[in-house]
Amino acid sequence: MLVVEATAVKVPARPDPTIVLHTPLEEANTAAKLEWPASPEGRRGAMYPVAG
């Protein structure tokens, strides 16, 4: 489970688009879980695809 805080930002010059920022919170160790896929250990797991 990932726990994030969503912040919506409007661009004053263009009210149509909305930028949403997702900030990881300390709950459920979210930041570490998001960093893992980019780590050497996480990338190594991508070399062995799961059948299915």
Rank of each mutant, 00 (worst) to 15 (best):
N29V: 02
R44E: 15
H22P: 03
L21K: 15
G45F: 11
P15T: 11
V3S: 02
P24E: 06
R44W: 00
G52T: 09
W36S: 03
G42H: 07
A8Q: 10
T30Y: 07
R44Y: 06
A46N: 12
P24K: 01
T23R: 15
D16G: 07
L25Y: 10
L34C: 10
A28Q: 12
R43G: 04
A51I: 06
A6D: 03
S39P: 04
A46F: 15
P24R: 08
V50C: 02
L21S: 13
T18L: 09
V4Y: 02
G42C: 06
K33I: 08
T23Y: 09
E35C: 07
A46K: 15
V11L: 14
L34H: 03
S39M: 07
I19A: 13
A28E: 14
L25V: 09
S39C: 03
R44F: 00
A8G: 03
G52M: 00
E35L: 15
K10D: 04
A31M: 11
K33Q: 14
E5K: 15
E35D: 14
A38W: 07
V4M: 05
L34I: 05
A32Q: 15
A46C: 09
A38P: 02
K10N: 07
D16E: 12
P17S: 10
T7N: 13
E27M: 00
T18A: 05
V3R: 09
V11C: 07
S39N: 05
A13N: 10
Y48M: 11
A32C: 05
I19Q: 09
N29H: 12
A6Y: 04
R43V: 13
K33P: 04
Y48A: 09
K10R: 14
P15I: 04
P40A: 03
T30K: 09
T7E: 14
V11I: 15
H22S: 06
T30I: 08
Y48Q: 08
E26A: 15
A13Q: 13
E35V: 08
R44N: 12
S39V: 09
E41P: 01
V3T: 05
P37C: 10
L25A: 05
P15Q: 11
R14E: 01
A38V: 08
G42I: 01
E26L: 14
R44K: 15
R43C: 11
P17M: 10
G42D: 06
P37I: 12
T18E: 07
A31N: 01
E27I: 03
A13V: 11
P49Y: 10
P24G: 07
P37Y: 10
A31E: 14
R44A: 15
P24A: 04
K10F: 00
M1N: 09
L25R: 09
L34D: 08
P15W: 01
P37E: 12
V3K: 06
L2Y: 13
V11F: 10
W36C: 02
V4G: 04
P37L: 12
K10G: 01
E26W: 07
P24N: 05
V50D: 01
Y48I: 12
N29S: 12
A51R: 12
V4R: 03
M1I: 07
T30E: 02
R43W: 02
K10L: 07
G45V: 08
K10V: 06
A32K: 14
A8T: 02
A28K: 12
V9E: 06
W36Y: 15
H22C: 13
S39D: 01
P37W: 09
P37D: 10
E27T: 01
R14T: 04
G45M: 13
A31T: 06
